[in-house]
């Protein structure tokens, strides 16, 4: 059952990415282009997502277990450290270069779009590089 819920959640998530314009790299780059003709639309994606998730999250995280009996995640460990800042900065540069972040990259690859597939392959490689250097 948990995998069916996950499949449904992934589907709705992906439809949301497409509906919102978040999966369109050109729109992402227009959103990030404060110095040009700025398209502020994608700020509304975050507003809509957090608006919809805020109360369910607050309620869910006070429950001992999920509907399917799984333990709820504890508050994420770790503090505001160098890894968080440096990692987010590198991510932001890659996002600003390409217009892709991880979710839309997977969705684009799912549509058999070659740029999405190439980006996803490079992203997976970057994740593997991270795993190697951590050892």
């Amino acid at each position: 059952m948990t995998f069916l819920i996950a499949l449904l959640s992934g589907l709705i998530f992906g439809l949301g990415l497409i509906t919102s314009g978040m999966s369109d790299p050109a729109k992402v780059l227009s959103f990030l282009d404060l110095g040009g003709r700025w398209d502020p639309s994608l700020a509304f994606v975050m507003a809509g997502a957090i608006g919809a998730a805020r109360l369910p999250f607050a309620w869910a995280l006070r429950q001992p277990r999920s509907w399917l009996g799984q333990l709820m995640p504890s508050a994420p460990a770790g503090t505001i450290d160098r890894s968080l800042i440096l990692g987010s900065a590198l991510f932001g540069v890659g996002w600003g270069l390409s217009g892709f972040c991880p979710g839309p990259a997977i969705t684009s690859a799912g549509a058999f779009a070659l740029p999405g597939i190439v980006f996803t392959a490079a992203m997976v490689t970057g994740m593997k590089v991270f795993d190697w250097q951590k050892k």
């Binding site: 996950a6 949301g16 919102s20 978040m22 809509g48 608006g51 919809a52 369910p56 869910a60 509907w67």
Partner: peptide
Amino acid sequence: GGALIGLAASLLLLANGR
């Protein structure tokens, strides 16, 4: 679209705790 994304994330957390 953002609301759909928030709904999807809420479903995964409420039902699966993930």
